[in-house]
Design a protein around this nucleic acid. Structure first.
Length: 857
RNA sequence: GCGAGAGUGGCGGAAUGGCAGACGCGCCGGAUUUAGGAUCCGGUGGGCAACCGUGAGGGUUCAAAUCCCUCCUCUCGCACCA
C-alpha cells in the first residue's frame, strides 16, 4: 500500500463538505475565533503566494477549532479592478464574465488545497448585494463631511484616458500599460475621503496593536502617517494686503528666515508675478516644473531650482522684508505649500541660497563651535544656543521652540500645529469595472447624493464593455441621464467608480452577516464576532489596505456600525515566495527547461547566470504553478513544504528538493501506520508502568507540548513540524516487541493517535486517511486537540553541564529529583572535573538549577 | 539621507544569556535488491590533535549567536514632508 495523495485528498474534501464541519453557525456557543486571510483578487489561477498565506491561515483555523473555539474562517473575492478591464480589452470578453470565470477556477484550486472555509459565507465585491452597502457608507460620509470633492493634480495617461494611481506610474514617469506614453499631471475634480481626520487616532491606536502586530508594520504605518510637531507662523505681505502662513518644525530658527519658498503650483506664485510684471518668466518656470515628472522632481539629489516671484513679505521677528521664491522642492500638498527658508539651519535652503546668492543668517550656535555664514559649507541642523535672536538669544534651541511658539500665540501671529504626512484618500477612478459612486450632477443643484432608497446604483453590464480610450461608463448615455433627485430636472450620473481599496476596507465585517439584505450587518452579530482575532497577509499592504481598513472601521464605529477601535487584533505578515532566477546574457530570464544540464542556454549555448532568489514572477520566469505541485505530490505536500521551509514571516525559498522532502516525510508517516495498524488495532486498554512505556509516553507528551506551544503562542510552524518529524523517527525505532506487547502497545496507540491529531492541521487529508485506517472515531479534523500531561512529559533524568573557567568540560546525568547538594557533590566527584580542578583553588561556583554548574578555578 | 530588520555548516533553518548547528535538503557509508529506483539504518562544521568556530573588531558576564559599543554587508520601508 503506497501513499497516493490524489486518491485520498478528493475523498476527504468531499466528506468535509458533506458533513459541513467547517460551517460556522451564527449563534456563538463557544469562545469565538475569527481567522482571516487577505482575500484574493480573482486573477485566474492561484500562485505560490496564495498557497502560503491560505495554508498558514488554515493551520491556525484548524488548530483553533480543535482547541475548542468556534472558528469563523471565511473567503471571498476582491473582484473589481483594472486587470479585468485589460483582459476584456485583449480577449474581447466582458470584465464581469472574465471575473466570474476566474472565481470559478480559483475556487476549485482552493478546494483542492483543502482549506477549511465556510463556503456559505463567500461573496464577491463586484455584486450589487455587496457594494450597495459601501455606496450607503459613502452617502453617510458625504453627510458627515468626511467625503468631499476637490480639484486635485493627478497622474493622467493620454492613451488610457484615465487617472493613474502613483503606483501605476513607472519610475521613468511613463504609464504602466503604455510604456511609451509619458504620464502628465492634470487637474480634475475628484472625490476624497478624509482619512487625515483620523490621523491622530490611527497613530494612537498603535498602543492597542502593539504586541499583536509586527513592529515593522507599525513602524511603516508610523512613517506613513508622519506626524510632526511644530508651529504655523504668519508672514505679512509687503503691501499689508494679507499674509502667508508657513508650517515649521523649527520655530526657534525664525530669526534666520532670510527668504521664503513656495510650491510652484501655489496660486499666489503667479499672482505675485503678475503684480511685479514678471508673469512671463515665472509662468515659464512653473510650467517647466509641471512637466518634470514626480520621480525626477523628488529625491534629495535632484537639483534645487527656483525663481524670484517678485513678491516680498516680512519676517515677523526681524521685521526685515524678504523675497518670495518659487522652488521646485517645495510640496504643494504638504503643510501650507509655503516654507520659511532658513539657509543656515536647513540643508535644502542652504543649497538654494548658495545657488541664488541669498543671505545666510546664523541663529543657532552648536556647542563649542563657531559658525560663520560666509564660510560654512553646509547647514547646521542640530541643536544649539540661539544667537542673534532678539530677546530669545542665549536660550537652548529646545527651549526656544517653546518660548517662541508661546510668543506667537500671545501676539496672534502663529500657533502650535501638528502636521501629518498622511493625505486624504482620493477615491475616484475613471474606470468601468468598479463600484459606481452614488451621486448625480445637476446643472441647477450641483452635486446631489443618490437618495438612500434608490441604492444600489448598479453598474450597467449591458454596454460595450470597452472603448478604445477612457472609461466605458462615460459612454453609457442611457444610464447616465437621470432626473435630478432634488429638482427633477435633467441631470447626469457620476461616471467615476471607487478605488478598489474601498471594497477591501470593510469586507471583514460583511463575512459576519453576508446575506443580510436589510443592513450591512446585524449589530448583535457584529458584537459577537469582531474584531478579527488573527489577520494574515503580505507586507505589501502595510500602508495602503491596512490603513484604509483601520480608518473605515473607526468611521463605521462612529456611525454605530462597527464597535471596538481596531478591526484586527493580531496581524501576521507572511514573507514572499521566492525562487532562483536564471539569466542568459543574450536572451534574458530563462525557464529551467530552457537551460541544459551544464547550465547553458539551449538557444545560444551561453553560460546562464544563476542569480539570487527573487520573488516568483512571470517576467523573471521563476514561477512554479501550485496546480502542478498538487497534481504531482498532493495538497498536503504543498502545505507541509510551505510551512516547514521557513518561519512564516520570512521569505520562503522554493526548492524542488525541499518539496520532495516534505513528500517523503508524509510517505514515511503513511508507511509507519500501514506497517503498525494491526498492532495498533490490537492494542490493549491500559498501559503498564514499564520503563519502555514511560519512554514512549514521555516522547509523545513532550512532542505534544512543543507542538502546542509552537503553534499557539509562537507561530513557529517549522519547529512544530520538526518535533513531529522527530517523533515519527522515534516511532520507527521502537522495537516490534513493544508494538506487540500488551503492556506497551496501548502507549504506542496513544502515541499514534496524538500524532495524527497534531499532524491534522498541517496535512489534513493524510491525517484523516490514517485516522480512518487505525479505526479512529469520526473525523480527526473535528476532534479536540489533546492535552499534554506535564507529569508524563517530565524527564526522569537530566543532563547537567559542567563548565570550568567558562569552557564545557563535562556532562553528568543525574536523577530528576536530585537536590542541589547532591548535584554539587556529584560534580566534584566527576573524574573529568577533578582533572581540571586538582591542586587548584575553587574561586567561585555557579549553580543553575537542573541545568548547569560553572566552576572558576 | 532617515527608519526598521537581518547576517549561524555546502543549502533552508534550530537554539533569545547556560551543551551552537535540532529538523529537513544535499553528500558519504551500510542493509535490502540481478541492477537502478524506492525503502530502512548509520555518519556528516573545521582541525591529526590540543583546540577553533555564529559578518569584523572591542566590551559586560562564571557563561554571549543571544546583551552593550564601533564598523561592514544585505533586505525592506520612507525618501526634498519644511
Amino acid at each position: 500500500m503506497r501513499y497516493q495523495p490524489k486518491a485520498i485528498e478528493e475523498k476527504w474534501q468531499k466528506r468535509w463538505e458533506k458533513e459541513g464541519i467547517f460551517r460556522c453557525p451564527d449563534a456563538v456557543t463557544a469562545p469565538k475565533f475569527y481567522c482571516l486571510e487577505m482575500f484574493p483578487y480573482p486573477s485566474g489561477r492561484i500562485h505560490m503566494g496564495h498557497v502560503r498565506v491560505y495554508t498558514i491561515g488554515d493551520l491556525i483555523a484548524r488548530f483553533k477549532r480543535m482547541r475548542g473555539f468556534q472558528v469563523l474562517h471565511p473567503i471571498g473575492w476582491d473582484a473589481f479592478g483594472l486587470p479585468a478591464e485589460n483582459a476584456a480589452h485583449r480577449h474581447g470578453t466582458h470584465p464581469a464574465k472574465w471575473t466570474w470565470e476566474n472565481i470559478g477556477f480559483m475556487k476549485e484550486q482552493l478546494r483542492e488545497l483543502g482549506i477549511s472555509y465556510d463556503w456559505e459565507r463567500e461573496f464577491s465585491t463586484c455584486s450589487p448585494e455587496y457594494y450597495r452597502w459601501e455606496q450607503l457608507f459613502f452617502l453617510w460620509m458625504l453627510e458627515d463631511g468626511i467625503a468631499y470633492r476637490k480639484r486635485a493634480l493627478l497622474n493622467w495617461c493620454e492613451e488610457c484616458q484615465t487617472v493613474l494611481a502613483n503606483e501605476q506610474v513607472n519610475r521613468d514617469g511613463t504609464c504602466f500599460i503604455h510604456d511609451q506614453e509619458r504620464v502628465t499631471q492634470r487637474e480634475l475634480d475628484q472625490w476624497f475621503v478624509g482619512t487625515t481626520k483620523y490621523a491622530e487616532e490611527l497613530l494612537s491606536g498603535h498602543e492597542e496593536l502593539a504586541g499583536g502586530w509586527p513592529d515593522n508594520i507599525l513602524e511603516m504605518q508610523r512613517n506613513w502617517i508622519g506626524r510632526s510637531e511644530g508651529a504655523e507662523i504668519d508672514f505679512p505681505l509687503e503691501d499689508g494686503g494679507g499674509k502667508i502662513t508657513v508650517f515649521t518644525t523649527r520655530p526657534d530658527t525664525v530669526y534666520g528666515a532670510t527668504f521664503m519658498s513656495m510650491a510652484p503650483e501655489h496660486p499666489l506664485v503667479l499672482a505675485f508675478a503678475r503684480k511685479a510684471g514678471r508673469e512671463e518668466e515665472v509662468r515659464e518656470f512653473v510650467l517647466k516644473v509641471a512637466q518634470q515628472d514626480r520621480i525626477a522632481r523628488s529625491g534629495e539629489e535632484a537639483e534645487k531650482e527656483g525663481i524670484f516671484t517678485g513678491g516680498l513679505c516680512q519676517n515677523p521677528m526681524t521685521g526685515k522684508m524678504i523675497p518670495i521664491y518659487a522652488a521646485n522642492f517645495v510640496l504643494y500638498e504638504y503643510g501650507t505649500g509655503a516654507v520659511m527658508a532658513v539657509p543656515a539651519h536647513d540643508q535644502r535652503d542652504f543649497e538654494f541660497a548658495r545657488t541664488y546668492g541669498l543671505p545666510v543668517a546664523v541663529v543657532i550656535r552648536p556647542d563649542g563651535e563657531e559658525l560663520s555664514s560666509g564660510t560654512m559649507t553646509c547647514a547646521w541642523e542640530g541643536p544649539g544656543r540661539m544667537v542673534d535672536s532678539g530677546p530669545f538669544t542665549g536660550l537652548s534651541s529646545e527651549e526656544g521652540k517653546r518660548k517662541i511658539t508661546a510668543y506667537f500665540e500671545e501676539k496672534g501671529i502663529g500657533k502650535r500645529k501638528v502636521q501629518y504626512r498622511l493625505r486624504d484618500w482620493g477615491v475616484s477612478r475613471q474606470r468601468y469595472w468598479g463600484c459606481p459612486i452614488p451621486v448625480i450632477h445637476c446643472p441647477d443643484c450641483g452635486v446631489v447624493p443618490v437618495p438612500v432608497q434608490d441604492l444600489p446604483v448598479v453598474l450597467p453590464e449591458d454596454l460595450p464593455y470597452t472603448r478604445e480610450k477612457g472609461n466605458p461608463l462615460a459612454g453609457a448615455e442611457d444610464w447616465i441621464r437621470v432626473p435630478c433627485p432634488a429638482c427633477g430636472g435633467p441631470a447626469r450620473r457620476e461616471t467615476d467608480t471607487f478605488d478598489t481599496f474601498f471594497e477591501s476596507s470593510w469586507y471583514f465585517l460583511r463575512y459576519i452577516d453576508p446575506k443580510n439584505d436589510k443592513a450591512p450587518l446585524d449589530p448583535e452579530k457584529m458584537r459577537n464576532w469582531m474584531p478579527v482575532d488573527q489577520y494574515i497577509g503580505g507586507v505589501e499592504h502595510a500602508c495602503m489596505h491596512l490603513i484604509y481598513a483601520r480608518f473605515f472601521h473607526k468611521y463605521l464605529r462612529d456611525r454605530g456600525v462597527a464597535h471596538g477601535n481596531e478591526p484586527f487584533r493580531r496581524l501576521l505578515s507572511q514573507g514572499m515566495v521566492c525562487m532562483q532566477t536564471m539569466e542568459c546574457p543574450k536572451h534574458g530570464w530563462r525557464y529551467p527547461e530552457e537551460v541544459d544540464d551544464e547550465g547553458k542556454c539551449r538557444q545560444c549555448g551561453e553560460t546562464v547566470d544563476v542569480g539570487r532568489s527573487m520573488k516568483m514572477s512571470k517576467s523573471k520566469r521563476n514561477v512554479v504553478e501550485p496546480t502542478v505541485i498538487i497534481e504531482r505530490y498532493g495538497a498536503d505536500t504543498a502545505r507541509l513544504f510551505s510551512l516547514f521551509a521557513s518561519p512564516p514571516e520570512k521569505d520562503l525559498d522554493w526548492s524542488e528538493q525541499g518539496v520532495e522532502g516534505a513528500f517523503r516525510f508524509l510517505g514515511r508517516v503513511f508507511r509507519l501506520l500501514v506497517q503498525r495498524r494491526e498492532a495498533v488495532s490490537r492494542a490493549g486498554e491500559s498501559w503498564d508502568d514499564s520503563a519502555e512505556t514511560r519512554r514512549i509516553r514521555r516522547m509523545t507528551h513532550q512532542t505534544l507540548r512543543k507542538v502546542t506551544v509552537d503553534v499557539e503562542d509562537r507561530f513557529h510552524f517549522n519547529t512544530a513540524l520538526s518535533a513531529i518529524m522527530e517523533m515519527v523517527n522515534f516511532l520507527y525505532l521502537v522495537e516490534d516487541a513493544a508494538w506487540d506487547s500488551p503492556g506497551t502497545s496501548p502507549a504506542l496507540r496513544e502515541a499514534v493517535e496524538i500524532l495524527l491529531h497534531m499532524l491534522s492541521p498541517f496535512g489534513p487529508h493524510i491525517s484523516e486517511e490514517l485516522w480512518e485506517m487505525i479505526g479512529g472515531e469520526g473525523l480527526v479534523s473535528s476532534r479536540s486537540w489533546p492535552g499534554f500531561d506535564p507529569e508524563v512529559a517530565r524527564a526522569e533524568e537530566i543532563l547537567v553541564v559542567v563548565q570550568i573557567n567558562g569552557k564545557l568540560r563535562s556532562r553528568i546525568t543525574v536523577d530528576a529529583g536530585a537536590t542541589e547538594e547532591e548535584i554539587r557533590s556529584m560534580v566534584m566527584a566527576d573524574p573529568r572535573v577533578l582533572e581540571y580542578t586538582e591542586g587548584k583553588k575553587i574561586r567561585k561556583m555557579v549553580y543553575v538549577p537542573k541545568k548547569l554548574v560553572s566552576i572558576v578555578v
